[in-house]
Design a protein around this nucleic acid. Structure first.
Lengths: 208, 208
DNA sequence: ATAACTACCGACCGTCCGGTCGGTACCATA
DNA sequence: TATGGTACCGACCGGACGGTCGGTAGTTAT
């Protein structure tokens, strides 16, 4: 139904292109990245790059779908094999966090540059993201049914979780104070048990 | 030391311009927003708008500083008057969350568009954001000293907190299922007590 | 009445960007 | 050694965008 590429170019080179483009877009943002920037990073000219891609927006769309594929393969699918919802949630948070801290770029772009797509592209990406969101919230719902969840709204909690994880891309730096594993572990701790020790606090009230 | 505006234009109109620009930039992103877009939204031409602003980047810089001003006035300053660190933290999270959910735009832009600034502008904004970050982390450090904090890294915890709060702008919608107050309350609950009920869980292990 | 200032606008400019097109050099395969 | 496909490139185009400039209409001050 849709116009395909005129020919079928080397697939490995295509993967290289996605990787290089993701890195640059991650650093400068989609709009601030020119097709020339990407081509130069690959030792090519713009015209040469257009041998592989069908347009700047479609390149972004492809990168995002690649990122969603990673999320499915490395987080959602393995997690779904875990029966206990708490263990499943822990695995998902850790694996997702590591995907972000690894800094390969696609998952972060996926989250930051949706508005750059055309509306139909946006719809498709949003739909796939929604499936992942529903999987996470479903796990929280299971925990709630089992009486293992605090008294929180599972939708808000899922967004809170995703907020913490996605925010990693803004502050986590390779070679910083925390390793990828430590950062993921910290998020799990905060998400699971919160910041404050439980116990006797005679009701915390914001109005002095 | 720096070139000022040629004259001193109406300050109220300037505020209107900031507000309108913030709304559009919030919706479309800085790069995708043209100076013309902003001018038209104000019933002006681009040339007319340039009577008030010195450049697109400086407009963004001004909006960000405006957002940081709001954060100081409505969150940091009032919070600093609260002696108990847990109550102070609760107030900060709630007030900050409400600033985001209100959707006026400046705080969200502040967080999403830093890369669009010139390096000196970036440095100034980052410095002011750092002061707010330090205030939050300082509060967590106080709680830690008092033995009231879980065993978490206060830096990671502060980023986690900010991640949840800033993420609100991506999912919270006026008139949605949750009111601004409810959303802020949910974040406080999650941040303070976590997702899982405390108690007997015979060690959550991620490996089956 | 006039000078000065504010608040704009129409027209224009240089630049950069996404995208195209007609090539060419280099393989394969037969 | 002809054929055809892959992997590029130089040159170019139209359009949009940030920004400028020389105005003008309206208001206020003297």
């Amino acid at each position: 139904m849709r116009a395909q590429k005129k020919s079928a170019p080397n697939n490995e080179r295509l993967a290289e292109i996605y990787r290089a483009a993701a890195q640059i877009i991650l650093r400068k943002g989609y709009d601030a990245t020119s097709v020339n920037d990407i081509a130069n990073a690959l030792g090519m000219t713009k015209a040469g790059l257009y041998h592989y891609i069908n347009g700047k927006k479609e390149l972004l769309f492809d990168i995002m779908n690649f990122g969603l594929g990673e999320l499915d393969e490395e987080v959602a699918e393995p997690a779904k094999a875990i029966a206990d919802p708490a263990a499943r949630l822990r695995f998902a948070v850790e694996a997702h966090a590591r995907l972000v801290t690894r800094g390969q770029g696609a998952i972060t772009i996926l989250v930051d540059e949706i508005t750059a797509l055309t509306p139909p592209q946006q719809r498709k990406i949003t739909q796939r993201k929604r499936a992942y969101f529903d999987f996470l919230r479903g796990t929280l719902d299971e925990l709630k049914s089992a009486g293992r969840l605090q008294d929180v709204d599972t939708t808000a909690a899922t967004f809170g979780l995703l907020g913490m994880i996605n925010w990693l891309s803004r502050w986590f730096r390779q070679g910083g104070a925390l390793s990828e594993e430590q950062a993921a572990d910290q998020l799990v701790r905060i998400a699971f048990h919160g910041l404050l020790r439980p116990g006797r606090l005679k009701s915390v009230d914001s109005r002095q």
